[in-house]
Design a protein around this nucleic acid. Structure first.
Lengths: 238, 238
DNA sequence: CGCTTGGTTGAATTTTATCAACTACGGTGG
DNA sequence: CCACCGTAGTTGATAAAATTCAACCAAGCG
């Protein structure tokens, strides 16, 4: 069962048993990837899409000096580059953060699904638009929030996503990102990220040791980060 | 002919005559909207999607103090909130900048198209993912570029989009946005936007009077803004 | 043990926001 | 026709936020 976490916590009930079966049948290959490895580069032609079974991946773009800007962080259950199917190629790079297990689905198989399974098609489309909704929230975060609020917002989002797939109990989770990675996600330097993390700890909102994140005050963190999970389209989850 | 500019400059040839006809038949209503009016608010349930026939619209989110962050600017030919079809509701507001002419397409009609026209479905999906690609570029812009580069990048993007639909000749176009609007798009204050526009003029890159934009050095502007139009998925256009 | 990576700290500098005036200009009403 | 008004744009001074640079510490690994 490859797609166990697909849309988990998000309209999973709309995925009929037959559609799920068809989706499983579309998988051409399952692969294990090493950590910190770029799996797909921008502009390379792609004929398959990558579904993340387990692990953490990210998508990023480089500026002229080679500095990264993360545009998305992906966890188990994410159809990471399904958007490459209608687009034909990616406009960014895709890399692993941890060791990952991924399933590859050929675009020709997706063509078949689109031609025969409208309900599934709409759900696949939906899943790509979830990413777009998160993109918008990242724009908001970078455009309107200061550093401390950006970091708070990022952790709130990440916690909510992990909780939806059972990888967070609401106050504790593993996030395999360095402070430099976090800075690349939030548009600040790693030095400043370090100071912001300390401030969050001082304010008793959040503490991170290595890759262990402890949310000490979720309400307070959400207030500071102006976080409202509506854009994640989760089934309920307060 | 409502969809004359749809996908213009971008795989328009993949849209068959029959599919186009079916799309035209799906339009339930055509409306004229006044300028500077919020047309759809976040969280309101929507049953139709909005295609922009002519005019300029924007999508935005408010922070807690009510300050706006634009997340997209739309021009003729954009299926502005097609993503609301799979999502069910919007996570942001949609407003006009100028007076606009829009076509409304009921989601039930889209359901019918998805069930019967796979090629059209894929193109509609594609068009929503173009927006996602632009979102990513906006994330990059806000996360990695300083103010002057952000502004340059924004103008490069806008010029390229307008050129694709014949609203720019490469050096001159109309952009009905105030300096405050531009600031809300680029994540800077209107005061700072004013200074950046002056600097662009001083550097002989771009001059804007009222809503008249004159690109004086497109190459230079693109270099400064680290702009590469690949993410716009245009047919050619250097 | 020494090396590398990630994290921490302080000081100086740069960038951008904020605040407060003030100007230019296109309507509108008298 | 002109005075007035509101919006958009402009400018300078000051303050706040974040970067940069340079050093140093700590842990994990060969």
């Amino acid at each position: 069962m490859v797609f166990a976490d697909f849309l988990r916590g998000r309209r999973r009930d709309l995925l009929s048993a037959q559609d799920l079966e068809a989706l499983e049948a579309a998988v051409a290959d399952v692969r294990n990837l090493p950590p910190r490895k770029t799996f797909i580069s921008r502009d390379q032609n792609i004929t398959m899409s990558t579904y993340l079974i387990d692990g953490v991946m990210c998508r990023y773009m480089d500026d002229r000096q080679g500095e990264r800007q993360l545009v998305a962080v992906h966890v188990a259950g994410d159809f990471v580059d399904l958007h490459g199917y209608p687009l034909g190629h990616l406009d960014h790079d895709l890399a692993t953060l941890t060791a990952c297990r991924v399933a590859l689905v050929p675009h020709v198989a997706l063509d078949h699904l689109v031609a025969t399974r409208p309900a599934l098609t709409k759900l696949l489309w939906f899943s790509t638009l979830l990413d777009a909704a998160m993109h918008r929230e990242w724009i908001f975060r970078l455009g309107r929030l200061d550093a401390i609020a950006r970091v708070s917002h990022f952790f709130c989002e990440t916690e909510a996503k992990l909780r939806a797939i059972g990888r967070s109990d609401g106050s504790h989770f593993i996030l395999p990102m360095t402070q430099a990675d976090l800075g690349e996600a939030c548009g600040i330097t790693s030095v400043h990220m370090n100071r912001m993390l300390r401030e969050l700890k001082d304010r008793n909102l959040l503490a991170m040791h290595r890759h262990d994140v402890e949310i000490r005050d979720r309400k307070g963190l959400a207030r500071l980060g102006e976080f409202d999970p509506a854009y994640l389209f989760l089934d309920d989850q307060n």
